[in-house]
Design a protein around this nucleic acid. Structure first.
Lengths: 164, 164
DNA sequence: ATAAGTTACGTTATAATATAACATTATGCC
DNA sequence: GGCATAATGTTATATTATAACGTAACTTAT
């Protein structure tokens, strides 16, 4: 899974990545503190790895990052999956279903709904931020109680179309 | 994966299942014929299994069904995955990403877009039929060229809410 | 402060899902 | 028939995920 590729695509072209990361991390800490929930070191490590990458990562890729650290090596899959489960529950992280991968949430607050544009060219993923879609409204009207909803739109971003 | 559970939920309550199946199968045959594409026996077998179930099935579950047939047993995963790939491409089958499972399409024709209501209670899945969502329009307007889009709304159907 | 209860983490093994690579058979076309 | 292509078959293995059980850390009540 290439992670440092052609940075030429999708919504987050010009932004201060370090600042964005640290803001999201602070927000996560505050969220957990306010809810009296423990953002432990492990959980924070996993969140940081995802926020740094800013792109979807597989669980084993995250695991690799954790084990890159020479001290405290040899971490096993369940640890990553448990941290992810925690972060997903809080909406700090989303799962990109069509890639079996995970990505840090850029708009914490909408835990139960997310929409993504997924470029097949540069493999970048942009999170959109629509509070509620017409489909969700429709579902509710039919009496379906929504727990979680996912929209994944795959295709080619403008840049990648141009580069063909 | 329970497949014959509490049939009490979601959109397709009252319908003639056998008829629905055979209609979809005919439609598939016609589609392939008109496009001069081969709906081989294997591919048709897989399609039939999915249409019969009318619910999402894992690839290995399908495999199990194929191997249930005493003659011509011992079929291996790639065969199923290849048939699925073919059927997905044509939009005769959809992939339920959040379950890593596959389901026969009930509205062939919209190959590149599908929406599902997925009940956590009875595990049934209903396919909706909205041609285009506002999100897709939005994506297009941003210059994103959509290849495929997936909407998966998970929750509790009306029946399952009542049965709590 | 300590014992009891709970939550998080660590570890081992294994299950479930998916694909790579290559051999064989069938089909379409000249 | 002979050739090219497409589909299937086969073996092995990669990738993703979880079960089950043990240990450590934190929380709370006494």
């Amino acid at each position: 899974m290439p992670s440092s590729k052609t940075k030429h695509c999708l919504a987050f072209e010009h932004h201060d990545h370090r600042r964005c990361q640290s803001q999201l991390l602070s927000a996560a800490r505050e969220l957990c503190h306010s809810r009296n929930i423990r953002l432990t070191e492990r959980r924070e490590q996993v969140l940081q790895i995802l926020l740094q990458s800013h792109q979807p990562m597989g669980a084993y890729e995250i695991l690799g990052q954790l084990n890159r650290n020479p001290e405290a090596s040899n971490i096993a899959p369940p640890i990553v999956y448990r941290a992810l489960e925690f972060l997903l529950e809080l909406g700090l992280v989303h799962r990109i279903e069509c890639k079996n991968a995970f990505i840090g949430c850029v708009h914490p607050g909408h835990a139960s709904t997310a929409q993504f544009l997924i470029c097949k060219g540069c493999e970048k993923v942009a999170e959109l931020d629509n509070p509620t879609t017409s489909l969700q409204q429709e579902a509710s009207q039919v009496g379906f109680m929504i727990d979680h909803s996912v929209v994944e739109i795959t295709g080619l971003c403008a840049e990648c179309q141009a580069n063909d």
